[in-house]
């Protein structure tokens, strides 16, 4: 129960961050991605601020033996660069460049009364589902 309450509060904080950073505005995101137009570099400050705080905070948190509400830290340990990583990242960037939404902002903007956000969300969830199907077919093959 504590994990659920904590996760909800963390989600709210994340959503407030996205709102203040204006990442819930696809127009702003696309201005950042438009290097050859009237480039708006603001989003570099969002990612820089987020990664900077996480870099310091993670180091402090990892001094502990375990998290407060779970048994162990679950941090990805893979270091190999495979085709899925590069193709998946590239495909995601292309979709981001078309619509100006990545998964966090796409959820945060959902309840603000824009039909476009709902259409995008249905398609994004369909993409999640298609990946699960693809993954199942691929891992069944010998």
């Amino acid at each position: 129960m504590n994990r659920i309450v904590a996760s909800f509060a963390i989600g709210i904080l994340f959503g407030i961050g996205l709102t203040i950073a204006q990442m819930v505005n696809p127009g702003k995101v696309l201005s950042f991605l438009d290097l050859a137009g009237g480039w708006d570099p603001s989003l570099a400050f969002v990612m820089g601020g987020g990664a900077g705080v996480a870099a310091i905070g993670y180091r402090l948190v990892w001094r502990r033996q375990r998290p407060l509400l779970a048994d162990a830290f679950q941090v990805p340990k893979r270091t190999d660069i495979d085709a899925r990583l590069v193709i998946g990242g590239g495909l995601f960037g292309a979709g981001w460049g078309i619509g100006g939404l990545c998964p966090g902002p796409a959820l945060a903007v959902l309840a603000l009364g824009h039909g476009e956000a709902v259409i995008f969300m249905v398609a994004m969830l369909t993409g999640f589902g298609l990946f699960e199907l693809f993954d199942r077919v691929r891992t069944k093959q010998p």
Binding site: V86, G88, G89, G95, W96, L101, M121, M124, L130, F131
Partner: peptide, 13 residues
């Protein structure tokens, strides 16, 4: 856009 973001982010982890 949504399909590419959904499938791509899961494929790329």
């Amino acid at each position: 856009a949504g399909l590419a973001v959904g499938f791509g982010t899961r494929l790329g982890g």
